[in-house]
């Protein structure tokens, strides 16, 4: 049985680490982009951002001061049991978020949407957002903490209910226009990881887009060759736009285009777009049934 204290510790540490360490795959992709860019401003946006991440890792600040929305993606196995039941996961997430905020690893950013009041601890209805899914026969839990920055979420979210007659051309046009609009003046903090959901219901579609942007290792293509080809085509197109890091003149507005699909209504072709910013914050904690926690910047 996984104890509440173990969950809290793992969620806090994963969230805290995500705020101060850039995942290795994201860092490697940014270093590659820095080599590619020729415009001095484009290069400088990247070298400065990498230096900033180095300072954060050395305990001198944060990877980005907008720590955004506190998100946890939790996956349990068929034989996982939790002290107090699965509801404990949500309570542990709240405690971990409050602690990370208290210790200045998260900025107090979550406010009531109408009153605009700020409780100062990033807690409130819906936050932290915990998505609990089940997979496999194990008895452990995998937690991915993802403080999702405001820029990428606020300026990098689009949804369009297309129709079968709009075709793949419609998907391409929607995604390309969304990249152009969201990268304008560096709104989503490019180079961005673009998540695209195709199919499902509206909420499933956006959820797929978000997970495609946040939870896939940079450079991994979709296993379905048809989807993988579309990903590559859109990435190649984005690199020709003339938009670079932070919206400058350059090549790397986008590090990856990741698409996920779900079956949908025969009358519909829903498409959702959700961006992740250049720092790609996420950190993974794996908990075993005997309370052993291991952490990784990878998402395997």
């Amino acid at each position: 049985m996984i104890l509440r204290s173990t969950l809290e510790e793992a969620m806090y540490t994963a969230m805290r680490t995500a705020s101060v360490q850039m995942p290795p795959d994201v860092r490697a992709a940014l270093e590659q982009a820095a080599k590619e860019e020729t415009d001095p401003m484009a290069r400088r946006h990247l070298t400065v951002s990498l230096q900033n991440a180095d300072l954060a890792r050395a305990g001198k600040g944060l990877v980005c001061a907008d720590t955004g929305f506190p998100l946890f993606f939790v996956q349990a196995g068929a034989h996982t049991t939790v002290e107090g039941g699965f509801e404990t996961i949500f309570q542990a997430a709240a405690a971990a978020t409050a602690r990370a905020t208290e210790e200045c690893f998260l900025r107090p950013t979550m406010v009531d949407p109408l009153r605009r009041s700020n409780p100062g601890n990033n807690l409130g209805p819906g936050m932290p957002k915990v998505e609990l899914t089940f997979s496999g026969n194990g008895d452990g839990i995998r937690i991915i903490a993802a403080p999702k920055g405001g820029g990428s979420e606020i300026f990098g979210t689009f949804y369009n209910m297309l129709f079968p007659s709009d075709g793949v051309a419609g998907i391409k046009k929607f995604v390309l226009e969304s990249i152009v609009n969201s990268c304008y003046a560096g709104k989503i903090c490019p180079p961005a990881i673009i998540g695209v959901g195709v199919g499902g219901t509206a909420d499933l579609c956006m959820s797929m887009a978000k997970k495609a942007a946040l939870l896939r290792r940079v450079g991994v293509r979709h296993p379905d060759p048809l989807v993988a080809e579309l990903e590559q085509e859109l990435l190649d197109a984005a690199r020709r736009l003339g938009i670079g890091p932070m919206g400058s003149r350059g090549i790397n507005a986008v590090l990856a285009v990741n698409i996920e699909t779900a079956v949908t209504h025969t009358a519909a072709l829903p498409v959702a777009f959700n961006a992740q910013c250049l720092v790609g914050r996420r950190w993974t904690a794996m908990i075993t049934a005997d309370q052993n926690i291991t952490y990784t910047g990878d998402v395997a």
């Binding site: 369009n160 297309l162 129709f163 007659s165 709009d166 793949v168 051309a169 419609g170 391409k172 046009k173 929607f174 390309l176 152009v180 085509e233 859109l234 197109a237 020709r240 736009l241 003339g242």
Partner: peptide, 19 residues
């Protein structure tokens, strides 16, 4: 100015309109 050429290469017709 770059966009129409990129869209053409993606197979998006110049007069494409969403339903």
């Amino acid at each position: 100015r770059a966009l129409p050429g990129i869209e053409r290469d993606l197979g998006i017709p110049a007069d494409y309109a969403f339903t």
